[in-house]
Simulated assay, not measured.
Amino acid sequence: MPAAQRLLALRLLLSTGILLGLNAPLGKLGRESGISAAGWSFAIAAGGALVLLAVILLRRQPVHLNRRHLRYYVGTALLSYVIPNLVIYAAIPHLGAGMAAIYFTLSPIMTLTFSIVLGTKRPGALGVFGILLGCVGALIVVFSKGQVGRPADLAWALGALVIPLSLAAGNIYRTVDWPEGGAPLVLAMGSNAAAALFLIAAALLFDGGLPFAALANAPGLVVAQIAIAALMFALFFRLQVAGGPVYLSQIGYVAAGTALIIGTFFLGEHYGIATWGGALVIVAGVVATTLDGGPKTQR
């Protein structure tokens, strides 16, 4: 990867990861306001899609609705948005915002595993070491019992493994099925619109009604979450192009660190030294992989 592209990828990694890390604390506040997991996830997807659509219309970009693009919208929506968001926002009351966000950090090693199985290019030695180091840090955090005085529920701790599995599958899918000539902003908008439709169905199934009314419980939070999500999605697809699926998967490291800091200093969550030690190991993994000059899967 050329130096200029590596710097761009690093900037996108940090900015996208920080924005993603804000989702869990905001989601915790949303759940405490009485908004269900499906309802909060719907707000992110629908709000993000509308903001991105407005930008696309202002730029007069074409929106493709052919079979190829529609398949991509649906596949990305399910793997990257619907499944992980439903699980993480359902798990937050049981694990805490910081603990739940830690599961993002497991997606790089799972993404790498999927890449090897599918025969795509893998990172260089330093990159592999960085990803493994980040995974070790994540495992330390997961088994550190979470918040002091409020140990994590084992069933939810195990069930939350669906989050990195789905994210890793989405990372690979978005690369291998990227439509020819697909514009990142348009693909982000279409995938979020598809996710919003699935989440309406999820709200009807799990909540017994449409997700709109409960959002009025915290309008300020909803607006803030929509703005953050729209910006994150726009940067997310640019990072997919600049860094490839394995590199992109490391936004989970940045997101988890962001959520841990916010949860600790602003939401009253308290984590032990093992949790923070694991977070530092994760940071070391990000640095090692960023410095890696070996081959990476590119778009």
Results as ranks from 00 to 15, higher is better:
R67L: 03
Y72R: 04
G98K: 06
G134T: 01
H69D: 14
G98W: 04
G75K: 14
L65P: 11
A77N: 00
Y89E: 07
L79I: 07
L65W: 15
V82N: 12
C135S: 14
Y72I: 06
G124Y: 02
P84Y: 06
A91Q: 07
R122Y: 00
I102A: 03
R71K: 12
L78P: 08
P123K: 02
G119N: 03
Y81E: 04
F129V: 07
L118H: 02
R122H: 10
L70R: 13
G130R: 07
R67E: 00
S115N: 03
H69C: 14
H69R: 11
L133F: 12
S115E: 00
Y72A: 08
Y72K: 10
A125S: 12
G75H: 14
G127E: 07
T113L: 08
P108S: 02
Y73D: 11
T105Q: 05
S107P: 01
S80W: 08
L112V: 00
L133I: 05
L118N: 06
S80A: 15
T105P: 02
N66D: 15
G98N: 00
P62A: 10
H94C: 11
L78I: 13
I92E: 09
R122I: 11
G96Y: 11
S80I: 10
T111L: 00
R122F: 07
T111Y: 05
G130T: 06
P108R: 02
I88C: 04
L106C: 07
A91W: 13
S115Y: 03
G75L: 14
L78G: 06
I131T: 04
T111G: 01
Y89L: 15
V136K: 08
I92W: 03
I131F: 03
R68Q: 04
I116Y: 12
T120H: 09
A100E: 04
T113I: 05
Y72M: 07
V63K: 11
G124F: 00
Y72L: 06
V136I: 15
A125N: 06
I116C: 06
S107E: 02
V117I: 15
S107T: 07
G130A: 04
T111W: 05
V87I: 15
P108T: 06
